[in-house]
Design a protein around this nucleic acid. Structure first.
Lengths: 219, 219
DNA sequence: CAGGGAAGATACTGCCACTATCCAGTAGCT
DNA sequence: AGCTACTGGATAGTGGCAGTATCTTCCCTG
């Protein structure tokens, strides 16, 4: 199909399709002449995946490119899962120093909390993992706010996070070694977070409403 | 204290403090003269909260303003919790039509799945809730991708989301009617998501590494 | 063989979150 | 009183991101 039909089929403007090609998110069509190329179903599917990762997953164009690159280089299941896990952007990144040095105490206290948590959960992750650094940064900020995020609290959340990760991995590995593995794994690993967030917000809304209904005092 | 000291104490540039004031995120200092104002500890705390909501919570300046406005209007516990729940931005918002109409079937199928889920979980939320709409949009996109998000799958995630929401609400309500309630509730409700996401990613990393270690075949 | 797409390159736009500059008007020291 | 560093407020500018538009060249189709 021609680019105009690809655009019509996916609802993505032609200019945007060209943009995604430029940015390396979408492979070029099969050129049939200097100014003509043929696109196939794989382009339709890829565009849907791009839309899902950016609008649902909230990934930037650059992050989406990185993630899709790992999809295209998929070898075996384990390597693919690991590559995707590291290609996904970390939600919290350390600040640009500046005031980081001022609070070395909070920093190391937060780092200790993270280490305790990882030990308590028996998680096997290197101390250099970007996720560890992100969590440390987050705990440092929360400490500054006097928020109640002591390790005991965290463990309860960590247990639940562990259960969710197990569900995710079960699903991602269910496509074991099939050609569609990498793509489905990306969908599971990248979109599980936003889906869960939506469910959590919904559950939160339910609980808040029940509280309000239980004792409708003032007002 | 003067604005320069407020800046030094929080690590936020003076220009940014002025920006937050303009945008209504930070109340003005107590003016002591036409060109001089005095700031207090509440300004320090508010700036920390702004930083936490934007950098950790990922909220935009506009969303942060809305959330902080509900904090400042806090009356009683239940109302405050409800107000915050609705002031927080919904992660997934419906697209701008366009290709929405093309897929009315997927749309209604997704809506039916969401209704089934809410019924199965016995959640009390109005069908007009932004979270319901967001979830519907997300499921529609996932259906297009042929992703495995059938209701049975979703229920497992929903149960976990429910547990998390219960933990959140317990914490948010623990500050019951104290003056700090609203602020702590915001921290819990707005930052629980990012914290959980970080923990989930960490747990995911652990699981991926264990898989890789269990059977280190090719390489 | 004329006209409408198509491809690729380049330039432009709109939004966001700051950041910098400018303009008085003090505060506080001498 | 005079000087200077700093302040609040207004306004303008910056850089990054995600597209969107334009322009040129080319060539398939009717």
């Amino acid at each position: 199909m021609k680019i105009s039909e690809l655009s019509r089929r996916t609802g993505v403007p032609v200019a945007s399709i060209k943009y995604f090609r430029r940015e390396g998110l979408l492979p070029a069509g099969r050129a049939t002449a200097a100014t003509l190329a043929e696109y196939g179903e794989e382009h339709v599917q890829r565009l849907r995946l791009i839309k899902a990762l950016t609008t649902l997953g909230g990934l930037s164009i650059a992050a989406t490119r990185d993630v899709l690159a790992t999809v295209d280089q998929a070898e075996n299941t384990d390597k693919t899962l690991e590559a995707i896990s590291y290609a996904l952007p970390v939600p919290v990144t350390a600040a640009s120093a500046g005031d980081a040095d001022r609070d070395a105490a909070a920093e190391s206290a937060a780092a200790a909390d993270v280490m305790d948590l990882i030990a308590a959960m028996d998680w096997q992750v290197p101390g250099t993992s970007p996720h560890v650094r992100g969590l440390t940064t987050a705990l440092r900020e929360l400490r500054r706010l006097d928020a109640d995020y002591r390790p005991e609290r965290l463990v309860a959340y960590a247990e639940l996070a562990h259960s969710i990760a197990r569900l995710d991995l079960e699903r991602a590995a269910a496509f074991d070694d099939s050609p569609a593995l990498a793509e489905q794994a990306v969908i599971v690993l990248a979109l599980s977070g936003p889906m869960l967030e939506l469910l959590r917000r919904l559950a939160q809304e339910d609980q808040v409403r029940r509280r309000g209904a239980d004792h409708p005092d003032a007002e």
